[in-house]
Amino acid sequence: MKKKIAMYWGAGCGGCDVSLLGIHEKLLELLDDIEIVFWPCATDFKYEDLEKMPDKSIDIAFYNGAIRTSENEEIAKLLRKKSKILVAYGSCAIEGCIIGLANLYDKEEIFRAVYLENETTPNKEKIVPKEKAGELELPEFLPHLKVLSNVVKVDAVIPGCPPPKPVLIEALEALLSGKTQFGKSVALCDECPRRDTKPDKIEIDRFYRWHEKQDDGKCFLAQGIICMGPATLAGCGGECIAANIPCTGCMGPPPKVRNQGAAMLSAIASLLGEMDEEREKEVIESIQDMVGTFYKYTTAKLLPKGRVKDEG
């Protein structure tokens, strides 16, 4: 019997929906085994269609994107009710991803930046979205961005921003055969295309952003270019690195690491070469955008209630 599949796009860029098409002809093979019962992005379904389905009638539901609005939250709960297996699909659903960086700010700050202060958004009337405008009612913009597991029980995760082809194919095959555990359990260095270029001793004297240094084709970290690979789960095959771009960590941390950013920061700090304290401070402060570098994908998961405000 064909498995009933649902896919929902929460708060996200849409890349996850597209990534499903990225598996190319493999998708055609899969189509023989599946029946799509709900996929608003690709086919015409209404929420009421979903509501009418019997509970647990969907075999596998994929939820991509994070939970930013009350609507996202409602659908997440509905999908949980209607499906046997609920899968967090992609970095947004698992740990908040780039949009999760919004948890460094509150709702007012976000609206002010987006609708009032953004120079490319003409807004002479200074209109800010409201939940109720006359007859119209909009979903609530939640105080903080949530990840799927904050709202409902999640049975499986497919990491990546969006999930890379090899990760996705392995995950889909596993899920269709009833498995919820799949993927690798080591960090990216294990399969890095530059694996053999690692020197015996990595010693960092200063950091370079990638445009500041001519890439010599060797391990990025050894070149002083921050690469999140050592603290990032393998599986993608290092496709960014194959394209000469250091890893930014979208696959999330390997299994034993709870805090990807802290793990990498601690590693990087240990790799600094011999220098006096003053120079050390200078070198560390030269890292542009600490949070965006080390917590690019995991901020929302680690800060579900937003930032702890400085006192005073």
């Binding site: 260095c189 294990d190 690692k198 020197p199 990595i202 690979g229 050592p230 299994p255 034993k256 240990s270």
Partner: peptide, 15 residues
Amino acid sequence: VDEEHCSGCGVCISV
């Protein structure tokens, strides 16, 4: 070292 989960990143060797 938990060898099964070691990625060979070389950080420990360096430090």
